[in-house]
């Protein structure tokens, strides 16, 4: 049990689901842990490590299965493990862990800039771009392409039940990128008229499957049938180490009130989840900060991330809610 107020506050925010996105959650996790290390009264490496381990357990107990904060923990705990293995002294360990914050924040920003740069190369000048729902990563790609002087049109659909596709409409209007919008059922007609499809992902699995907003998988099927390239835009924080160990990812059922009203009888049920899974064979490439990869490269990416052994051992119990 951690006593540091920043860690406790962050854990509380995660528990109450008060943090906007997965990437922001990752930043808050690193920030709180770095503060805890800075303020720690630990007298030796073992005591500091025990403090970190305790905080990690507290965090995991409330953390939903979002890849970025788990990957942030891998970085932090992994750094600690390596420092311990090298026999680093307390001051050195403290320094390395606190540097994690600046490194992580700088890395996150440069990663998104690189994704935007590589992705923008796939936006055809004078072309039509289909994007499903909303993704701040894809928005950055389109902005980068616009900044390069490319002119193109964006096509998006509502993305029921949350209608996040309409956020894309507003965002494109901000950058003066022409955009047209339709209903989700129209993907069969609209994607074949486009030159390329970009979508963001919530999670990429070790087998190259992408968990994205519901409707992405049918969009990928249409793109394949029409021969339109289909790209997933995601920095490597979205690659989910837990999937390496066969653990399921988080999905949420669509709520009854989002589809049915009270006038429907009990035997009418709402079916379907908020996210669907797009298989790797439908994905042309995954646009990451280390380059545009085949989705099957996911395993290599996960290996390069040097996942923490200690954390990896905790993940099965974490995913069962048994920590």
């Amino acid at each position: 049990m951690t006593n540091h107020p920043d860690v406790a506050a962050m854990v509380e925010r995660v528990r109450k689901d008060e943090i906007g996105g997965a990437a922001d959650t990752a930043k808050e996790v690193i920030d709180a842990l770095a503060n805890m290390v800075r303020d720690s009264q630990a007298k030796d490496v073992a005591a500091l490590a025990a403090e970190v381990d305790g905080a990690v357990l507290d965090i995991l107990r409330v953390m939903p299965s979002l890849a970025p904060p788990i990957n942030a923990l891998h970085r932090f705990v992994g750094t600690m493990e390596r420092a311990q293995a090298e026999g680093a002294l307390l001051a050195e360990m403290r320094k390395r862990l606190q540097e994690q914050r600046d490194e992580f924040f700088a890395w996150a920003e440069s990663a998104l800039a690189r994704v935007a740069q590589y992705g923008s190369e796939k936006v055809p000048d004078g072309g039509r771009v289909f994007m499903y729902s909303m993704s701040s990563t894809v928005w950055r790609i389109l902005r980068a392409a616009k900044d390069q002087g490319k002119s193109f049109v964006v096509v998006v659909t509502e993305s029921r039940p949350g209608n996040e596709g309409l956020w894309t409409v507003t965002e494109m209007a901000k950058y003066d990128i022409p955009v047209s919008v339709s209903i989700d059922a129209c993907i069969g007609e609209l994607i074949p008229e486009c030159d390329v499809v970009f979508v963001g992902a919530d999670v990429l699995s070790s087998t190259g499957h992408a968990l994205c907003k519901a409707g992405t998988f049918p969009s990928a099927l249409v793109a394949r049938a029409a021969g339109v390239p289909f790209y997933i835009a995601a920095d490597t924080l979205k690659f989910d180490t837990a999937t390496l160990y066969g653990l399921p990812y988080r999905n949420e059922a669509i709520k009854r009130q989002d589809v049915l009203d009270a006038s429907f009888p009990e035997n009418a049920r709402v079916v379907g989840n908020l996210f669907d899974e797009t298989p790797p064979e439908l994905i042309t490439g995954v646009i990451t900060e280390i380059g545009i990869l085949h989705p099957a490269a996911a395993f290599t990416v996960l290996q390069q991330m040097q996942p923490s052994e200690k954390l990896s051992q905790l993940l099965p119990a974490w995913s069962r809610g048994a920590l």
């Binding site: 989700d184 409707g215 669509i254 009418a268 049920r269 379907g272 989840n273």
Partner: peptide, 8 residues
């Protein structure tokens, strides 16, 4: 009956 959204 199970009713979903078109995206599903």
């Amino acid at each position: 009956v199970g009713l979903g959204i078109d995206a599903s």
